[in-house]
Design a protein around this nucleic acid. Structure first.
Lengths: 224, 224, 224, 224
DNA sequence: AATGAATGAGGGTTCATTCAT
DNA sequence: CATGAATGAACCCTCATTCAT
């Protein structure tokens, strides 16, 4: 059930690119300021000041302020976020001999941890989606495809064993992610204390299991 | 269980104020554009153009672009949203002879309907919260107060009858609103088709009941 | 030596014109605000507010903000100020049997009193002159004419009696008004306490006499 | 009696600051236009046009139009003007073996020359004082301090020698500056020909001596 | 006559972006 | 590569002025 822990977005950026130190600090400054004040309320002068460089330097590598936003979000949106979700599904389907409940707990915990580690990117991502929902279209359609082609059969395995409610895969995924988002978004958005991972996992999983696992299987799991 | 249906925010605005027709159209245009493009990406010139008036007119009544945002959101934040929650609680506490499940369904349905009727305000509200979470502080602290003082006893009544899981009131509320938000926010934000109220209510309530109502009571309710 | 005391400008305006009460209060408000904040920093809205009328009313009688300024200043510049100066010269030339020193004291005192009574108009006048000196041209050329034609002979009378220094009339007038302005302008401009008339008169006259009255005549006057 | 001639304000600005050429021309243009049309009647676009740069450039160094005014006036108000007055007093106290009359002539001449060299700054300064007299408060209080602490004894030396009228120092200073202002302000404000320095000095000094120097000492000086 | 909503030109200011150094 | 002065379009807002009521 092991898979490489997803690195935080920023480190990923640093590794993958051949940016100079100055450019890296520009990227880091953008991340911080976009998350804190929003894209439109962050001036390139602000970025330069926080990055400790001249305004011109901001534009040397990233031709445009918008390109800077893309540089911050694109790996998140195009690479990391999908990967996270794919991993999530892999978690859920990985070890058929395990109970669904166990897998769910693992997968949920992993996702919460990941999201908490990338709260800033998430904040920016949410801000942008709220303003421009079409950003999501590409992402969701890809996910729908993945879910419909590959998850169906995985879930039906658990459903056959009576460990998973007899809904279609999309509704199950929608429910899980809905509850997850309902818990996490308020926390991400209100930048207060960053949520205790274990506690939240417990609360969410406990609740999800009520709705997703038929009573008999649940009893069995609990007496285990 | 009847109580006056909350009017949509915008109509409420129109009714309550003595704004001229032009000023009303300014407000309406702001609502549309803020929801569509976001506050910072909407210029006062855009608003004037859509409202069919001169730019100066925008500022005649609303001294500031920011005041315009407040004029759009304030009733939502200060009056209507809390009222919604109070109504919600009134629903839950009003008819003790009813099963919790019935009340929950009614309350959830009402709230979904209300939010769907004010999707634009919601969009703007969400955008602003994401950018400036401190906006929420006043609101949440007020709500916490209401919940802690008045909801506890209401819930304990149902809990005594075995119709409600034995959590503290805050966790129950958090769960309900979490699931609600998890369903609604994605829909509001992605301005696609506006969610079928009945269908969504069913799906949410069905799921919530699994987690909130002990199995025995649930069985009883279903055989009714 | 008596002549009707010059009324304050504002009362003069009221008397001479057939303005409605509202229009009079517009004029009064303009006077106050122009003097206090300057012409350009006073908006017609400010004027309307202080006058207790609608913005449109300000323009009903005075077609233009500039016309309002003219309405405030014109009587001062065209009628009253010249009249004051003519009176001043009349004072100086009125009673040949009197000593020049006595006349000077009376004339100076009268002018100080008048200017103190019209400090607001003076403030506005000074502000406008400073910005647009060409305003003065018409005024000064008229005064030069008056002085050269009528004052010369008056002064030469005193000069013949040895009571007045043997300068040409222009220089004498220039000196008197220079010293007067040097004392009064700073006080008018710095709106502090409005200068004690008697004390200031004494100080100015005493000093002027040193320079304008030959020593012998001065001694004689003092032993009187 | 020599002391370094005070440079004109503008050159001083150029020397002391590390402004780019464009910024210097912005400052120069502001000086010209503020003096010519007044602060409020000068738009930043006017300044840019005269300075030969874009409007944004005006704000690159001087964050605000008001800051531009301060940049023009501050050295005048805070450094140069006080220095001029201190120098003036130094002149008067510098050479006790000289007659007061000689010193006065030198000092007056120097001040007239200086003010004529900075007519534009003076015009702006006067305009601002007229609109906002509180600007002067700091300046005058500082000057009063200097005069009261250091000038008294200087003057009393001349007074002991019978070369200076027996007034308190403040009144003497007030008289001198009053007469100076009475002569100079009208000329500065009416931007006509810039006053012949020697002629004006003669006229002012001659007149001042009448009032400030007792007759005996005066006779002596004249027969010298 | 008086009103005040409406106007639109113009104001100061910000900002992403460019380019000579 | 990095700089930061320069740019000018666009922004929010003010204001004198008009006009239907």
């Amino acid at each position: 059930m092991d898979h490489t822990d997803v690195k935080t977005l920023f480190d990923a950026n640093i590794d993958n690119s051949s940016l100079s130190i100055k450019q890296q600090s520009v990227l880091k400054a953008s991340l911080i300021l976009f998350a804190e004040k929003g894209y439109e309320n962050t001036s390139t002068q602000d970025i330069a000041k926080l990055a400790g460089c001249a305004e011109g330097t901001v534009f040397k590598h990233f031709k445009t302020k918008d390109a800077l936003l893309k540089a911050v979000l694109d790996p998140f949106v195009n690479d990391i976020l999908p990967q996270v979700i794919v991993d999530f599904l892999k978690d859920l389907s990985g070890q058929p001999e395990e109970h669904f409940a166990v897998l769910l707990r693992y997968a949920v915990r992993d996702r919460i941890k990941y999201i908490m580690e990338n709260r800033q990117e998430m904040r920016i991502f949410i801000q942008e989606i709220v303003k421009n929902p079409s950003m999501l279209e590409g992402l969701t359609s890809r996910l729908v495809l993945v879910i419909e082609t590959s998850v169906n059969q995985v879930f039906s395995c658990y459903q056959a064993r009576g460990e998973l409610v007899d809904w279609d895969a999309m509704r199950i995924i929608r429910t899980i992610s809905g509850v997850l988002l309902g818990y996490l978004i308020p926390n991400i958005v209100m930048s207060s204390k960053p949520l205790d991972v274990d506690e939240t996992t417990n609360e969410i999983v406990e609740f999800l299991l009520q709705g997703l696992v038929p009573a008999e299987a649940r009893d069995e799991a609990e007496t285990r």
